[in-house]
Every structure is written in structure tokens, then in C-alpha cells.
């Protein structure tokens, strides 16, 4: 009975804080107000204030988790709708994304191994340029820690949002396809939110890059882990 009450309470808290933070973001629209970040901080503060351990929170949290699977499957819909654009630019899109996935994974793993981090941390870092729901699946299947993976995915995403446009100017990227693929392949959904500000075409390419990186990454990820360990 108590478990059920806790579950309902924490589902309610999660949804309520998220919706409130969404409103805040719509009002101010600053990168640092993105709901995922503010909601996380808000809920952690609530848990610390009432001395609730994470394990107790997860009684409710796991019910929210349940929607992650169908949401990932849903990513097929925008991808399907953009099939013409993908067919027309097959090589530039696939070439950019495939090398992006490889460079993202190999460079992260190499740097982290050089500094001497444990396998658990390296594997959690591996899918950092993949969109969160899929990154945590890749990492946990390889023995990583979900929460750490999300932290890395967020750092990659914020790098893309805040520094991405500057980087793209340095690299002299002046086409919609280059900018969209770069943002989506390196900074997943957060990069795509920046691409939306750059233009409609950039947004399309970026969302294609985000979804295809996730699919390619979930195939390449285990191979990388096997190769390095």
C-alpha cells in the first residue's frame, strides 16, 4: 500500500515539475532553462530536502521510464516522413553520420582510456553523442551506468548548443546539410534544437542525423566496446 502511494506521488511530482519547467522554458527560452536540466535539478533538490533516497524515488520513476521504449519506436515516424530528402542526399548524409559516430566514440574512449578511467566510466562515455533514450540503452547493455551516460550526453549536447554555431563558422560550414548533420551527429536532440533556430532545412538534416546516429550507434557501440576491451 505504502509502495503504491509512493509510486503515485513520485510520478505526480515528476510530471508536475516537468510541466512547470516547460512553462518556464517557453517564457524565457534560454539554453540553460531546458526542461531536462531544470527538472532534474528541481527533483534532486526536492529529494534532498525531504531526505528521500533515489531508490525510493524510482518506485514511481520506473513507471515514467516505461514510456521510453514506445517513444524510441516513435522516432521512426519523422524519419519515414523525410525519406525523400534522405534518398536525394544518401551519400552526404550517411557518409557524414557514419564517420561522425565513429569519431565520436573512438575519440571519447581513447582520451578517457589515456587518462586511465575505469571501464565502467569509459563505456558510459561511449555513446555521449547519441540521443539520451538510446544512449542509456547502449551503455547499460555494455555495463555502463545510465546516470553517468546521461551526464555525458548532456555535456555533449550543451557543447553543441552553446559552441556549435561558433565551431561551424570555424570549419567554414556554409550549407544547410553540413550544419544540420554536424549539429545532429555531435549533439543529438539538443543540437537539433539549435538547428531549428538556424532554419527549416538545417532542422530536417539535424533530426535525420540524430535518429540515424542512434540507429548506427547502437550497432557500432557494442563492436567498439568489444574492440577496446
Amino acid at each position: 500500500m505504502q509502495i503504491m502511494l509512493f509510486s503515485i506521488l513520485f510520478v505526480f511530482v515528476t510530471v508536475a515539475v516537468y510541466l512547470a519547467m516547460n512553462l518556464l522554458y517557453f517564457k524565457y527560452h534560454k539554453a540553460f532553462f531546458i526542461p531536462i536540466l531544470t527538472t532534474t535539478i528541481g527533483i534532486i533538490l526536492i529529494l534532498l530536502l525531504f531526505r528521500v533516497p533515489y531508490e525510493t524515488y524510482m518506485l514511481g520513476g520506473k513507471w515514467v521510464d516505461l514510456l521510453l521504449g514506445p517513444a524510441i519506436v516513435s522516432l521512426a515516424i519523422p524519419l519515414y516522413k523525410q525519406r525523400e530528402l534522405i534518398k536525394q542526399n544518401m551519400f552526404p548524409i550517411l557518409g557524414g553520420i557514419l564517420t561522425g559516430v565513429l569519431v565520436g566514440m573512438i575519440s571519447g574512449v581513447l582520451f578517457a582510456k589515456l587518462v586511465g578511467f575505469s571501464k565502467e566510466i569509459v563505456v558510459s562515455l561511449l555513446p555521449k553523442s547519441i540521443t539520451t533514450p538510446i544512449a542509456i540503452q547502449i551503455a547499460s547493455a555494455l555495463g555502463g551506468v545510465n546516470s553517468l551516460t546521461i551526464a555525458f550526453v548532456m555535456i555533449a549536447g550543451f557543447t553543441g548548443i552553446i559552441l556549435g554555431p561558433t565551431f561551424l563558422n570555424w570549419f567554414r560550414i556554409d550549407t544547410a546539410i553540413g550544419r544540420g548533420i554536424g549539429l545532429g551527429a555531435a549533439a543529438h536532440a539538443l543540437g537539433t534544437s539549435k538547428a531549428i533556430e538556424l532554419g527549416e532545412q538545417e532542422a530536417s538534416y539535424s533530426s535525420i542525423a540524430m535518429t540515424l546516429s542512434a540507429i548506427i550507434g547502437s550497432i557500432v557501440g557494442p563492436v567498439m566496446a568489444w574492440f577496446f576491451y
Partner: peptide, 8 residues
């Protein structure tokens, strides 16, 4: 984003 809040 709501669905991975529990993990974050």
C-alpha cells in the same frame, strides 16, 4: 525529455 528524467 520527461521519460528520462528518472534516469537523469
Amino acid at each position: 525529455p520527461l521519460y528520462f528524467i528518472p534516469a537523469t
